[in-house]
Nucleic acid binder design. Structure first.
Length: 737
RNA sequence: GCGAAAGUGGCGGAAUUGGUAUACGCGCUAGACUUAGGAUCUAGUCCCGAGAGAUCGGGUUGGGGGUUCGAGUCCCCCCUUUCGCACCA
């Protein structure tokens, strides 16, 4: 939408013209898709089902609206989900994100936190890295909530801790400046205005800066006190910048003796330190410089004296807190609900109507899709263009028929992409979101390929929606993608920055596919891209190296004309035949492992072998032709254009795409006589030629005949013969007695 | 700081299971054909030493140790790089 506004084009026209251009590029590259199954998520035929899904979620309370502090990108002029904020900046445009209090629509992904976490264990076909990233993002942590009564306001302050077993050592509480109880706690503070100004200052500090590692800890005493339920003592309540408002309860109990951050803060502010776990020697809390973590024995905390640090001790504390009504066991997550509202035009309208009498009313299924109006004014000003469209906003309440206005927020585009793979099953079905019978037959997706940038965005959302569809009974599997492959990025030197960077239009370091195709052909680009390196690794584009792929294809092309030069009969036929079978084996297994760079290398070797045979006239014409045909067939997936042409010129009428993949014969890979490497004490000394089926006795005999081996055996006896069949023989020696 | 992955020629990279390290390509060097060549072909190209030479000897997969007849590959320690997370209580 922003790109379209910049160019003075309607987003719809911009999108469809891009689709047209990219389809043409795909076709020029010879990329094969079943275009009859093509879908575009921005068409009403597709987004109708986003709306339908939203309504099912709304019915079950999984889609809801709430007022909350949210991430706002000033450049995109919309709110963003937590997942779309990377290091404090907008994932799309890099602009620093600010916080705003707004009423927004959310998907209740947190209901699925445990299942999203547990499901990862079964995904053996996923890179460990992606699973770790998702685990960290979900951020499950077990502990307890503990209530600290605050007499001055007549309420309890609840904190979350993973270490309820250290509650006796809590010598003060710390609140985030955003904590709702703060205004009442500081109401009677002598320097209230000063304190409020400081709080306001912290709240207005950008998150990225406030949470930076070099940011010093800063805090203020509220003057209010709370009672530690474990000890009955009154402890001060502080406010500090290092306590996060949106994790746990936004309040912590500080246990300086057993937490490094609390200890640092206590030392800085001169707050007391109290030991729960003691080491063998008498530790003076006043001189403690490092917190005692995961060691020691409890003292002075009856009835727990003598217990040692561990999960069992923690469980006993939780039961004790629960029995006394002071707290309860609690699991906390870092994961937040998915904010799906966007204040943009170009998205799926949220199918909700606001009626003066009936309130929030979902649009009935029969009225779907709620279509985007085309005729909308794009001014580039703040506010959704949709909200300025009378035609769209003004409607009738589906319940009472009275005047009502439509919700103008549209859905995050990640909603579209979280289930699109299911739509491929029945892309034209106008009655259902997808065919559950086909889903049962085809799901899960066997192989998914995508960049690492989707590790916790698309892939988490798609897993969530799949689990939800499972609960709705629409799919029979809980995980959408069995195997995940993360391809690496292509990088290239950027004139702009003088560095090697990810290839992208905005960095101005792209290679124009059209120019390259015009100059060296689509097949050159394809072969080079495959040959550049392992596909999971990042790779630097090299204009010089492209010519290697070009030369290779040229050589193959010219070889066709050289075939008639081969003699009718020749002595080394078996050798070329062996090379042919070896190539089939290597290319096939390389392709199966996604090791395309070695598949290309194997083809180059076969081409070199055939070239040598033609040059030296060591193979018969029939053999050379057969080898050439195999080369063409193996090369076909990588270079479809040139190989189809060669295939036709070879006189075949059936297209290569229809012909079967070559098979290799294990027996043809064996040689009658083999070169055996001979080592003496692990050092390579000679190679001897022996019959492939020679027994160890014969091999020993020929090895001992080698003059080089004899030379190295001078003055030594052979203690042991190690034979690796088909590969080598190692003679282990000792000095002659 | 925590977690993960990875370190192999001038460069991109090979080496499914412990068994000839450096395949294949780029680049470079020399030569051929050429008015010319960013075209094509041929030969060479890890390092050190000896030799006119084919060759011969030694060394080498970030560093150090270990297991093994044998280690780029397995184990331990260290170094470096990249990525992810990072005041998550």
């Amino acid at each position: 939408e922003n790109a379209a506004i910049q160019r003075g084009v309607h987003p719809k026209d911009w999108t469809f013209s891009n689709i047209k251009v990219m389809k043409e590029q795909f076709k020029r590259w010879g990329i094969l898709y079943d275009w009859s199954k093509e879908i575009a998520s921005c068409t009403p035929e597709y987004y109708k089902w986003n709306q339908w899904l939203f309504l099912r979620m709304h019915e079950k309370g999984l889609a809801y609206k709430k007022k909350a502090p949210v991430n706002w990108c000033p450049s995109c002029r919309t709110v963003l989900a937590n997942e779309q904020v990377v290091e404090g900046a907008c994932e799309r445009c890099g602009t620093e994100v600010v916080q705003r209090d707004l009423e927004q629509w959310f998907f209740r992904i947190t209901d699925y936190a445990d299942r999203l976490l547990d499901g990862l264990d079964g995904l053996t076909g996923w890179p460990e890295k992606v699973k770790v990233m998702q685990r960290n993002w979900i951020g499950r942590s077990e502990g307890a909530e503990i209530d600290f009564p605050v007499p001055s306001v007549g309420e309890k302050l609840t904190v979350f801790t993973t270490r309820p077993d250290t509650v006796h050592g809590a010598t003060f509480l710390v609140l985030a400046p955003e904590h709702p109880l703060v205004p009442r706690l500081i109401a009677g503070h002598p320097d209230r205005e000063d304190l409020e100004a400081w709080i306001e200052g912290v709240r207005n500090t950008p998150r990225i800066q406030r949470e930076g590692e070099s940011t010093p800890k800063e805090g203020r005493d509220t003057g209010a006190v709370a009672m530690n339920p474990a000890t009955g003592e009154e402890i001060p309540i502080w406010i500090a910048n290092y306590v996060l408002p949106d994790y746990g309860t936004g309040a912590i109990m500080a246990v300086p003796a057993h937490d490094s951050r609390d200890l640092a803060f206590a030392r800085q502010e001169g707050l007391p330190v109290r030991l729960v776990y003691h080491l063998d020697e008498d530790t003076d809390p006043a001189s403690l410089t490092e917190p005692i973590l995961h060691e020691g024995t409890i003292r002075n905390a009856p009835p727990f004296d003598g217990l040692v640090d561990g999960p069992e001790t923690i469980r006993r504390f939780i039961s004790w807190l629960e029995e006394n009504g002071w707290g309860r066991g609690k699991v906390t997550y870092r994961l937040r609900d998915w904010l799906i509202s966007r204040q943009r035009y170009w998205g799926t309208p949220i199918p909700i109507v606001y009626c003066e009498t009936c309130g929030t009313v979902p649009v009935p299924d029969a009225q779907l899709p709620v279509e985007l109006p085309y005729d909308v004014e794009f001014t580039g000003r703040e506010g959704n263009p949709l909200s300025r469209s009378k035609e769209f906003v003004e409607t009738k309440c589906p319940k009472c028929g009275g005047p009502a206005r439509r919700e103008t927020d549209t859905m995050d585009t990640f909603v579209d992409s979280s289930w699109y793979y299911l739509r491929y099953l029945s892309p034209r079905d106008s009655n259902r979101i997808f065919d559950p019978e086909l889903a049962k037959k085809w799901m899960s997706v066997d192989q998914y390929i995508g960049g690492i940038e989707h590790a916790i965005l698309h892939l988490l959302y798609a897993r969530f929606i799949c689990k939800m569809l499972y609960d709705f009974g629409f799919v029979t599997v809980e995980e959408p993608f069995l195997n995940l492959f993360n391809q690496g990025m292509i990088t290239r030197f950027s004139e702009k920055s003088g560095r090697i960077e990810k290839m992208s239009k905005s960095r101005g370091n792209t290679v124009s596919p059209d120019e390259l195709i015009a100059e060296m052909g689509a097949d050159t680009e394809r072969v080079y891209t495959l040959f550049i390196g392992p596909p999971e690794k990042e790779a630097e584009w090299s204009d010089e190296a492209v010519s290697g792929a070009y030369r290779f294809l040229q050589r193959v092309w010219r070889m066709l004309e050289r075939l008639p030069e081969a003699p009718p009969t020749a002595p080394a036929d078996a050798e070329l035949e062996r090379e042919r079978h070896a190539a089939i084996q290597r290319v096939t297994s390389s392709m199966e492992r996604f090791s395309f760079n070695t598949a290309v290398a194997a083809l180059m070797e076969l081409s070199n072998a055939l070239g040598r045979a033609l040059e030296e006239k060591t193979a018969s014409r029939l053999r050379c032709e057969e080898t050439f045909d195999t080369l063409v067939r193996l090369l076909h997936p990588m270079a479809p254009h040139i190989t189809e042409e060669l295939w036709e010129r070879r006189g075949y009428t059936e297209g290569l795409l229809e012909s079967s993949w070559p098979e290799f014969d294990e027996a043809k890979l064996r040689r009658a006589r083999i070169h055996l490497v001979v080592q003496v004490d692990g050092k390579l000394r000679d190679r001897v030629e022996v019959d492939a089926d020679a027994d160890e006795k014969e091999i020993r005999a020929s090895v001992l005949e080698s003059p080089k081996v004899r030379e190295h055996l001078a003055g030594r006896d052979v203690a042991k013969y190690v034979l690796v069949p088909g590969r080598l023989m190692n003679l282990v020696t000792r000095r002659s007695s």
